[in-house]
Every structure is written in C-alpha cells, then in structure tokens.
C-alpha cells in the first residue's frame, strides 16, 4: 500500500515538472511583457514582475512598427483569417458531405489526394505560387494570399468535417425528404444545424492556419500597410532586437487568442489528424 502511494506521488511530481516545462516559455513571455525595463535586464531575473507595468502594451498599441500601427497589422491578419475560414469552411462542408454521404468513383482517389496534399512541403511551393500570383497581378494583395491559405486549409478541414457529417444519422435526412423537403432544404434545415459544432471546430483550425502563417505573407506582401501580425513580429524582432518588453507584449497579443481557441477545439483536432489510427 505504501509502495503504491509513493508511486502516485512520484507520478504527480513528474506531472508538475512536465506542466511547468510546457507552460514556462509562454509564462516567461507574458511575465516579461509586464516587467519594466530595469527588471527585464536585471542581473537577478524575477519570475513575476515586482512592479508590473502596462507600458510595453501601450507602446505596442500606440507606437507604429515600420510606420504602420498595430491595428493595421491586426486588421489585415483578422481579415485574412476570416476570409480563409468562410471560404474554406464552405468548400469543406460541400466536399465532406460528398465523401460522408455518397459512394462514387474516385472517392478513394479524392481521399488519398487530401492525405498526400497535407504532406506537400508548402515552403517549396512559395516559388511557383509567387510567379503565378505575379502573372495574375495578385501579388502584394490580401486577396491573393487568401487564395493560397484556402488551399492550405481545405484538405484538413474536409478530413476533420467528414466525421461530423457521417455522425449525423442519415434517417433524419431521409425523414425530412419523405416529408417533402428538397435536397437544398434538407442540407440547410437538417444537416447544417447538426454539423454546426464540427464546423466551428474546423473553422477555428482554419483560422489558426491563416493567423499563424508567416512565409507566404512575408514573401508575397510588399507594402507594409498590408502586412500581417507575424510579419510585424519578425520586423520588430529584427529591428529592435533588444526591446524585449515590447516584443514580448506584441507576442502575447498575437499568441493568447490562438491558445484560447486551440484549447477549445484540441480534442477534435487530434481526432482529425490521427483518426482511425487508434481504431481498434
């Protein structure tokens, strides 16, 4: 009995260590963001700010980075992410319905294509997509970038959504059809409300994809007033390398929404990524 208790204490201690190691970098980011400069560069680091200050946040929100205000970066990032969510959500819902509700030729081919596409090294596609968008005169435009992000977000969104569509009992749709509802009506009145939670989870994933993306935005957007938050971070970090308080305040503003969203949907994300691998 005593042996078992000792073991439980040991495991819990390990759990605490893992928790601290996992959270510490993010904690340190937030903590630095609230510290006055003399504490940040003090020879004895303080884990928690002794004299917390909002100076760094206010300087991020009010001073310009590369002559552009934080809110411009924020608006660009938010617009890109929302447009990606809307379009990729619609495309994914259509395709997920096809895959979950119908048997058709090329269905397996289509699913394999979705799997393969997720493994394509996106960084390798920067070069050709740069030239294509240049030809279409969509370079240096948020619209062109949204197109690219949709391509990245859709395959995973379909794989994630199809489980939700498949989980809606087909009998409900059949019952509605017998009552005289056409396919469009069935889709909007029966299927859509029932897959709504799945659609939300998928949307958050697409949102994060677009919100976090750096390489393509950095390469395709030239004008600073079209730049995104990750680009702002990179610029800030590269040009004011030692303004750690403000850099960490900006990082906090970029990161916390993602973490909150992420914790809300993680369960479904894991099942989307490895669904089936644990079926047993």
């Amino acid at each position: 009995m005593k042996h078992r208790k000792l073991r439980a204490i040991g495991f819990n201690a390990l759990g605490v260590i893992v928790f601290v190691a996992a959270v510490f970098p993010v904690f340190w980011m937030v903590s630095t963001a609230f510290k006055p400069d003399d504490e940040i560069f003090s020879t004895t680091p303080h884990p928690v700010p002794a004299h917390p200050t909002l100076d760094h946040f206010s300087s991020v929100l009010h001073d310009n980075v590369a002559e552009v205000s934080f809110w411009t970066y924020f608006r660009n990032s938010l617009g890109l992410a929302l447009a990606t969510v809307l379009v990729s959500g619609l495309l994914a819902l259509l395709a997920a319905t096809a895959v979950a509700r119908f048997r058709f030729r090329f269905r397996t081919t289509f699913l394999i294509m979705l799997l393969v596409v997720q493994m394509v090294p996106l960084e390798a596609l920067v070069i050709p997509l740069f030239l294509d968008l240049k030809k279409l005169e969509l370079l240096n435009s948020l619209g062109g970038l949204v197109l690219v992000y949709i391509g990245f977000a859709v395959p995973f969104a379909i794989l994630m959504l199809r489980g939700f569509v498949a989980a809606v009992p087909k009998e409900l749709e059949e019952a509605a059809a017998i009552d005289g509802a056409g396919p469009v009506r069935v889709f909007f009145s029966v299927l859509l409300p029932l897959v709504a939670p799945g659609l939300v989870a998928t949307s958050i994933f697409s949102f994060i994809t677009a919100w976090n993306e750096f390489v393509f935005a950095f390469t395709f957007l030239d004008d600073q007033d079209k730049a995104t938050l990750p680009m702002m971070m990179q610029y800030f970090f590269g040009h004011n390398g030692n303004a750690w308080g403000s850099i960490m305040a900006a990082s906090t503003l970029l990161t916390l929404p993602v973490i909150v969203f992420f914790l809300a949907v993680q369960r479904r994300m894991v099942s989307g990524l490895t669904a089936g691998a644990v079926k047993g």
Binding site: G15, V18, F19, V20, A22, V23, P25, V26, W28, M29, T32, I40, F41, S42, P45, I208, W211, N212, F214, P230, M233, Q234, F237, N242, W244, I247, M248, S251, L254, T255, V258, I259, F261, F262, L263, Q266
Partner: peptide, 29 residues
C-alpha cells in the same frame, strides 16, 4: 491540468515560439 499545459506549447504560433526561445537564450538578460 497537465494535458492543458502541454497544449499551450502546441498552440503557440511558430513565429512567437521562435522569438520566445531567442529571448530565453538571449545573450543579454
């Protein structure tokens, strides 16, 4: 609790993760 903490690491955007680690491993401070 531990799973929630671990997920915080996963959720951090790559750009911020790189910047945070540059700060943790920074030469001054």
């Amino acid at each position: 609790v531990v799973a929630g903490g671990v997920l915080v690491a996963w959720a951090t955007p790559p750009v911020t993760a790189a910047i945070i680690f540059s700060w943790l491993f920074g030469s001054t401070g």
